[in-house]
Design a protein around this nucleic acid. Structure first.
Length: 772
DNA sequence: GAACCTTGTCATCCC
DNA sequence: TGGGGATGACAAGGT
């Protein structure tokens, strides 16, 4: 199949060249586009990758003009749709509406980039040059452009001169052989029958005459798309497209030029004739069999470059398209964009008279939607590029462009977007690869974090858990952050709410401790509860009830409540060491529930047994007031109380010790509580921070994903645009020699790679200098 | 019986 | 200067 394809291709090409040489205008595209789609597929393969998108014609196709499903316009249609979808999908990244404008570098007749010849530099800003198809009257302008297109072509010498020559016998034989080959392949002979074609063209011309009156008539547009115009001077026919369809012609011309180029033995850097007519003259001889090369088809390749694996490229492209098709929420984007009927990707192929540029790709209004200024793509530093003074930069659409810069910087987009295998073409001496501006965002550490997060999420952890996992993994604090699950910390946490006020008012603490009575403990005071006091006084107790509170885990409430807290069961410490040894000996601790059913006497006995050492001492020293009073009375009242009684020094000393120890005890409890609260608060803060961290990580992952997707889309767009760029000879630009670069004003420049490298290096130095 | 926890106590600092 | 709060350290007792 490959050889057959090659054979047929070569035959058709030879045929085309011969016909063009003898002055018969042959539009291969006519066959390829409308009449024999299979042929095009045979030659070019069923790929839209080689379909030169009619950017300026997208308006028509996207406006809903009928497209035959088998027409290769459908291919263009899908390509255009895809491009449009890509552009629209960029709104997801909040990129403000921005235009992608392609600037062509003028290539002077010598075939070298005239970067130092301002005079030859072409700025297509002129009205006669590149049309800025931005307004709603694009259609009119395109129509006008189309009207002048054939003239422009001829001004450029792009159309083969009307050489009136007869076919030699060899040519006729060759043509006949080719016909037979095509017939064998299923192509009707009438396809190549020039007279029949003329008849068809006549019919089409009639249709076209009617259509030109109203070129935008719905049905006429489709018919017009296949119409052929007859050159007024030469009588040759060439496809007349609907408004905006001139690129079809231009591409047809390009194709012919490429074929011609392929037949000519000049290399990449060979000097090109100034115009096409001279090219045709430069063809060595009509009788010389043209040498065809196999690498005609790649839009990204020049003749001298090593051929890429086209199949691989196509698969890559398709995979990107599939991914984008999955990712782009078209409905959302349509709502967001509310796209007008005008095609945002209109391309203007209009040519300026006397302009050596014969192709002009303007991704006009290629809205990289939502490119916010803080997230715009390209650095305004590109504005410093000598656009006006340098002829190497040809603005295709310099106006009406918002900034699409900043994040990407004035970067060599070829280095940015093209994979190494694309950049590193043969004989590529362009130097080191330019840095990826997004590379810093996707550095290894970030990706590690992302992978960690992704792994954790995949493993079923939520981000908080993942963060905790990560935290615990490298935690060296030794502080268990999981203490909140322990009963002690729970109780502590409950008590922490009142801890701050506990020392100021014991009664308020007690009143607020209905649900957390346990944690109120004695830290706020020694049994200041009136009930306890009454009980003590009724029973003649001399002191406070620290042991009671201790037994109840310092609760003022009914100790039986403890039984309702199962997680406190194991905290049943019985610190009875404050009791006198005698009391301890007989101390048979009943369960807390025993207090409930116990009589008052039993309770009194029990409380007596629970007395602290100080209480026992106070009782032994016959202190006439309770320890609670000793401890909790204000200094003035305490002093009054002391003054009321005649106390010995030993008694006074004991009373002061009791007061000191009691206060210190409460202080110690409050201190410990505060410690615990501090730890709990710290733990809560850590959890909050972990939550925040997880959220930020999630957002970061999202942003990075978005960035990645955006990068891929911009890369594919770059390849699309770059692959469609042609020099004045219709040859694709070599990625190793040229690169697209976004200027500060949002336009796109095609500049030599050396210059792009220099700028990239300059760009690299800037951050380094800043760091210094 | 060791390890750990809880609580009370002391010493000290500070207000 | 004394009272008292805060806190580290220690000991005792419990688990």
């Amino acid at each position: 199949m490959l050889s057959l394809k090659k054979y047929l291709t070569e035959g058709l090409l030879q045929f085309t060249i011969l016909l063009s040489l003898i002055g018969v205008r042959v539009d291969v595209d006519t066959y390829l586009t409308s009449q024999l789609p299979p042929l095009r597929e045979i030659i070019l393969g069923p790929s839209s990758a080689y379909t030169q998108t009619q950017f300026h014609n997208l308006r028509n196709t996207l406006d809903g003009y009928g497209i035959h499903p088998k027409s290769i316009d459908l291919d263009n249609y899908f390509t255009a749709r895809r491009l449009l979808s890509q552009v629209r999908a960029l709104d997801r990244f909040q990129v403000p509406t921005t235009e992608v404008n392609a600037w062509l570098v003028h290539r002077d007749p010598e075939g070298s980039v005239s970067g130092t010849q301002p005079s030859s530099g072409l700025t297509l800003e002129s009205s006669s040059g590149l049309q800025d198809v931005t307004g709603p009257d694009n259609g009119v302008r395109e129509s006008e452009t189309e009207q002048g297109f054939s003239e422009d072509l001829e001004d450029l010498g792009a159309v083969a001169p009307p050489v009136s020559g007869d076919l030699t016998k060899e040519d006729i034989d060759l043509i006949d052989i080719l016909w037979r080959q095509d017939i064998d392949l299923g192509a009707g002979r009438e396809v190549f029958d020039y007279s029949q074609r003329q008849k068809e063209q006549d019919v089409d011309k009639e249709l076209q005459d009617g259509g030109e009156q109203d070129p935008w008539a719905g049905e006429g547009a489709e018919a017009l798309a296949r119409n052929l115009l007859v050159d007024g001077e030469t009588g040759e026919s060439f496809p007349a497209q609907v408004p905006g369809g001139e690129d079809q012609t231009a591409l047809s011309l390009e194709e012919c030029l490429r074929l011609l180029e392929a037949t000519c033995p000049f290399g990449e850097n060979a000097e090109f004739p100034a115009d096409i007519s001279s090219i045709t003259e430069a063809v060595p001889s009509e009788s010389e069999p043209p040498v065809l090369q196999n690498n005609l088809l790649s839009p990204l390749l020049t003749g001298t470059e090593s051929p890429f694996d086209l199949e691989q490229q196509w698969q890559d492209l398709m995979s990107i398209m599939e991914m984008q098709a999955m990712e782009v929420n078209t409905s959302a984007s349509e709502i967001l964009y509310n796209a007008p009927p005008g095609d945002p990707l209109s391309t203007n192929y209009s040519l300026a008279p006397n302009t050596p540029i014969n192709q002009n790709v303007s991704l006009h209004q290629a809205s990289l939607g939502g490119c916010s200024q803080d997230f715009s793509l390209f650095s305004p530093e590109v504005e410093s590029l000598p656009v006006a003074g340098s002829s190497t930069l040809l603005p295709l659409v310099p106006s009406n462009s918002t900034s699409l810069n900043s994040t990407f910087g004035s970067t060599n987009l070829a280095g940015f977007f093209f994979p190494p295998q694309l950049n590193g073409t043969a004989n590529d001496t362009a130097g080191p690869e330019l840095p990826d501006p997004l590379g810093g965002l996707l550095d290894e550490a970030m990706l590690d974090e992302i992978s960690l997060m992704d792994l954790a999420i995949e493993e079923g952890f939520n981000p908080v858990q993942a963060s905790q996992l990560e935290e615990e993994f490298d935690s060296d604090s030794g502080l268990s952050l999981d203490s909140s699950h322990s009963p002690s910390s729970l109780s502590s946490s409950d008590g922490s709410s009142s801890s701050s006020s506990s020392s100021s008012s014991s009664s308020s603490s007690a009143s607020s401790s209905a649900s957390s009575s346990f944690s109120e403990e004695g830290a706020v005071g020694y049994s200041s509860d009136s009930e306890t006091l009454d009980l003590e006084e009724a029973e003649g107790a001399v002191g406070y009830q620290p042991e009671y509170s201790k037994f109840c885990r310092m609760s003022y409430q009914d100790p039986s409540q403890l039984s309702c807290l199962p997680y406190l069961e194991h905290v049943g410490h019985n610190h009875t060491y404050n009791m006198a040894p005698s009391a301890l000996d007989s101390a048979d601790l009943p369960p807390p529930s025993a207090l409930k059913k116990g009589s008052k006497e039993k309770q009194a006995d029990f409380l007596d047994k629970q007395m602290s050492r100080d209480e026992h001492r106070a009782r032994a020293m016959k202190i006439p007031f309770t320890n609670d009073k000793i401890i909790n009375l204000p200094v003035e009242e305490f002093n009054e109380l002391l003054s009321k009684y005649q106390l010995s020094e030993a008694q006074l000393s004991l009373i002061r010790d009791i007061r000191r120890r009691g206060k210190n005890k409460m202080a110690a409890q409050n201190c410990r509580k505060r410690k615990l609260d501090t730890i709990l608060n710290l733990e809560r803060d850590v959890e909050d921070l972990q939550r925040d961290k997880a959220r930020l990580l999630r957002e970061k992952v999202e942003f990075l994903r978005s960035l990645r997707q955006m990068k891929q889309k911009v890369q594919s767009l770059y390849q699309e645009v770059f692959g469609r760029l042609r020099d004045e000879n219709g040859r694709p630009y070599s990625p190793s020699q040229y690169a697209l670069q976004y200027a500060g004003d949002g336009s796109v420049l095609l500049i030599p790679r050396t210059m792009a490298d220099q700028q990239a290096r300059r760009q690299e130095r800037k951050p380094k200098d800043r760091r210094k």
